[in-house]
Design a protein around this nucleic acid. Sequence first.
DNA 1: CGCGACGTTGATTTGCCTCAACGATTGTGG
DNA 2: CCACAATCGTTGAGGCAAATCAACGTCGCG
Lengths: 192, 192
Amino acid sequence: MYDLILSNVSKHIHLTREETSLFISVLKHRRIRKRQYLLQAGDINQYENFVTKGCLRAYTVDAQGQEHIAMFGLEGWWISDLYSFLTNTPATQHIDALEDSEVFSIEKSDLDRLYDQVPKFNRFFLKLLQNAFVAHQRRILASISQTAEEQYLDFISRYPSIEQRVPQSQIASYLGLSPETISRIRRNQVSK
Amino acid sequence: MYDLILSNVSKHIHLTREETSLFISVLKHRRIRKRQYLLQAGDINQYENFVTKGCLRAYTVDAQGQEHIAMFGLEGWWISDLYSFLTNTPATQHIDALEDSEVFSIEKSDLDRLYDQVPKFNRFFLKLLQNAFVAHQRRILASISQTAEEQYLDFISRYPSIEQRVPQSQIASYLGLSPETISRIRRNQVSK
DNA sequence: CGCGACGTTGATTTGCCTCAACGATTGTGG
DNA sequence: CCACAATCGTTGAGGCAAATCAACGTCGCG
């Protein structure tokens, strides 16, 4: 049950037995049914969440009611509205499940205590965030410099596991394209 | 001379006198003339840079020769090609100066040693990166959900100091718009 | 002075969106 | 278990926001 998250941690730092059990003691296991919210915009994001099963998404809803996906969360990924989490302000993002899912959640106060008691967790989350930051930078540059087709092809080659699991319309929403555009790109693709 | 960077650090962590002098000892002061490179794509980004004076930009150049600005760096900001820095691989970004500038640079090996000797620097860079991550997330959502005009107005209200200092064409390049579009937005704006 | 950098403006093009209709598949309540 | 609704993707027609192309004015600098 703890294998996935412990191997995720051990990619970056090494934990002693005591540190491991301390870490495990702050994990809250939760099941989220498809379409169920893990977080609603307006609420305060109390948890950093690690996905152990299924698939979630974080997204905003604009004035026209359109959804814009900030990130997906598959097995082995972390997902939260980080700004809300850090500043204790109401979330601007919703997080919900695209499939029946399971996560481990760490409460903010527990995480802060963990940072103090086992300082190397600072290093761990620093590493995580470095990776996320680099990925975001790439996404920004893609968004401002590439055509719709380039963005889509890049996406599916970079995240084939997402492309296979989530509806095309969700990928469209992640890329900032219309579902029809994705459909047309795919049509042109087969004839190439 | 060290005031700006020390106050930047002390926003997030407190340093003893010894830690402060250790920190200062790894800072390399550099002057970069307008149009001069701090980093060229293809080279390995050896430094994390803190801007103490002037204004720099990090950007990629695509196959058509078009520049796309990843980030600006004004006084008090950090700037680097983080991916290259972390992985020791050739940079994909150029960094150069839009004005005569000065920076403090920290070499990677020094930073790694600093992390070990003064672990709270992990915390410091974690905090920095959290802020940067949140800003990037906002930028992504803006880019995929807003019109050109909304993006531009958002930008100048969020970063008035940049808008006053850098050419409009550079802001266009940051937002992924053409310079002409920015010009037209501004024209419509005055008549409102 | 003359040149390059920068911004403006107009004309035209184009990539992608919107709107609308439809088929296939999935899921669900009677 | 079937019928009907919802979800999802596809396709076509038309429109529009922003890009492109081109010409020109202004300013600052070497």
